[in-house]
């Protein structure tokens, strides 16, 4: 059951991602992006990472996508605009390399050489402690430093937004 759901969701998210790239209308593209985000959230739930699934929906599918749509609508993009293919000679090599990479990945998956390590946080353990609690615990113990430095990262991003976008400084 779970395996079927995984395959369905994986197929839907990849299809939506492909449409996102090829769709000419930016609003549709944004909607396909939401589709991809939601599918990924389902994949997180299948992995029993409910907290991350919720965050994925709230932050990505919710907040960020609303901003995206706002920007697209405010910019009032001309849908009919035909974009010229600036890199015509890249198309065939790109398709060729893509096929090579795809076959290589398939070969790797088939080869049974793949022997990922089981991490210390097994599903049973995570469920016994609780998703949110475990993440909070890690953020304030093992990953305290990167967590705090992220505040500088956000601060820099805020300065950048003002610096580059404000009309008059």
């Amino acid at each position: 059951m779970e395996a079927y759901l995984f395959y369905i969701m994986a197929a839907v998210s990849v299809t939506a991602a492909v449409y996102l790239v090829f769709e000419k209308n930016p609003v549709f593209s944004a909607l396909y992006l939401i589709q991809t985000m939601v599918c990924i959230a389902v994949l997180y739930i299948l992995l029993e990472a409910q907290f991350i699934a919720a965050v994925q929906i709230i932050v990505y599918a919710g907040a960020i996508m609303v901003l995206f749509l706002f920007v697209i609508m405010l910019l009032n993009l001309n849908i009919k605009e035909e974009t010229k293919n600036a890199l015509p000679f890249q198309k065939i090599p790109a398709i060729f390399m893509g096929i090579v990479l795809f076959t290589a990945i398939c070969a790797v998956i088939k080869s049974k050489l793949l022997q990922g390590k089981q991490g210390e946080y097994t599903t049973a353990y995570v469920n016994s402690v609780g998703n949110t609690k475990l993440i909070g615990n890690l953020l304030f113990t093992d990953y305290l430093l990167p967590f705090e430095i992220t505040s500088i990262l956000l601060f820099v991003a805020a300065i950048g937004a003002i610096m580059l976008a404000k009309r008059k400084l």
């Binding site: 430095i149 500088i152 990262l153 820099v156 991003a157 300065i159 950048g160 610096m163 580059l164």
Partner: peptide, 9 residues
């Protein structure tokens, strides 16, 4: 990321 974003700006 901190380094790169500062330099993009």
């Amino acid at each position: 990321e901190v380094m790169s974003i500062s330099i993009y700006i």
